[in-house]
Design a protein around this nucleic acid. Structure first.
Lengths: 120, 120
DNA sequence: TCAACCAGTATACTTTTGGTAACCACTGAT
DNA sequence: ATCAGTGGTTACCAAAAGTATACTGGTTGA
């Protein structure tokens, strides 16, 4: 809804949108989950298996620990990734993509292909 | 490249990423074009034909004129939309999706479906 | 004449985001 | 003992993004 909005003119000549796109339409809502800086990349890097925190930071080359950590927390809350403490003595943590996270890979791939195909 | 990065440990035990994801990997670059607030929605609203500026603002319900204008300018520069002055006396302008812009609709639809399917 | 429309523009403001750097407590190798 | 590693946290700052309100200058219709 909202996505099929139309403009109507009432009897006084005032224009209004019949179905204004309510603040977060599906596209906006999706973007909120996956559109943040690094989020897409992070999820993509996890697609082949669990990755440790610092490895992830290195792979993203350019993102600070703080950024990666922040995004990972948001994505964990959203249920896209899962944090697991692998070992306690020398603390080791891995981040793994969840089943729900995997459902987003399809569209991330579409985005990736689109970018590459159009040399963006 | 960068997307298949691996962590290697050198002879001194120091770890480095063999192919660090260079600042803008395809996913990041794509997000830069389509990930901004409202951009996806705007493109989606144009998919069925040209829309006039104020109608677009009304349809997006929540975005300010300034925002919509800014995004439209960015998207015009990127070649995603085309601005056209339809009439001069009572000034009328329409925004239309370009052929290039249409190539992005596929993945926007994927995002929309994903959001709706997962009640995001 | 008045109000509403057109497509923006100007200004000022708040919020969010991103980034640096230092720090924590611990481990393992040199 | 010192350095580099583990996974973070914290404080601080700059820049970007977004919001709100009002305004331009002309046109249109009641």
């Amino acid at each position: 809804m909202g996505i099929d909005s139309q403009i109507v003119t009432d009897s006084n000549g005032r224009k209004t949108a019949s179905q204004p796109c309510l603040e977060p339409c599906p596209i906006e809502r999706g973007m909120r989950l996956l559109g943040g800086k690094w989020k897409g990349s992070i999820l993509w890097h996890l697609k082949d298996g669990p990755v440790r925190f610092n490895d992830l930071v290195r792979q993203l080359g350019g993102a600070s620990k703080k950024m990666v950590n922040q995004r990972l927390q948001e994505m964990e809350e959203a249920g896209l990734v899962k944090r697991e403490v692998v070992c306690d003595r020398p603390i080791a943590v891995t981040y793994e993509i969840t089943e729900f996270g995997k459902t987003a890979l399809g569209f991330l791939e579409a985005l990736k292909n689109w970018s590459e195909a159009n040399s963006i």
